[in-house]
Amino acid sequence: MNVFVNLGATTLHKLQAIGNASLMLWGALFAVPRLKNIPLTIYQIYVLGVQSLLIIIVSGLFIGMVMALQGYTILVNYGAEGSLGPMVALSLLRELGPVVTALLFAGRAGSALTAEIGLMKATEQLSSLEMMAVDPLRRVIAPRFWAGMISMPMLAIIFSAVGILGGHVVGVDWLGVDAGSYWSIMQATVEWEADVLNGVIKSVVFGLVVLWIALYKGYSAIPTSEGISKATTETVVVSSLTILGLDFVLTALMFGVN
């Protein structure tokens, strides 16, 4: 009996949390936007986007290079090493680009957001904003949300592009795949709408999810040191799992067999 009671209680609790999170998102996004907050948003793009560039570029480069290495060893058995180009490109554009970027983003930027907002809550900065008749949702949450939504697809595109270049370096310069066929077969196979844009759509959806989770966890964190560390870990774990689950759903929708 106890199991069911607990299950019911947990479910209700989670539903309440989702409702709370939706209210927070609504309040942050759909209030009338103020031009005054644009400098704040730009600063947040710097914090979330620019400062993630290094990890994204390095990861993209190495993943592209590893893919080319691994792909070559398998394709060469079928005499199909010319297809290395489209293999690297499609894997990155459709899957690895959006997903790995989102995971890295959740780990780096997401956790930082949760910790920052949780700390602002703990030191009563959010309360004092409210008492000064400034809506903390519009002033603190919204700029970070929009900055992240802008940064995520940008980072994903950079990841894929750098990965493809990395694949070129390993495949063409090192392993001897023909440069011409690397690019031309890729061009013949990769499609703008179907592959590149779908990948971008994925990264936008992942960005929304990561930011929503990170901001809400920070906003609703218990204002103690354990509370904040718990919220930060939860952001990374929940975001990562949601990204992977959503990836499956989106892939089935976009690339699935009709």
């Binding site: 710097y46 950079i158 592009a161």
Partner: peptide, 24 residues
Amino acid sequence: TELLVGIFVAITIAATLLLALQVA
């Protein structure tokens, strides 16, 4: 800050062009 954000946007545009023209 603004300069770096501008560079970030420029890199993104370059990457997008690469994808558009060279890859797809």
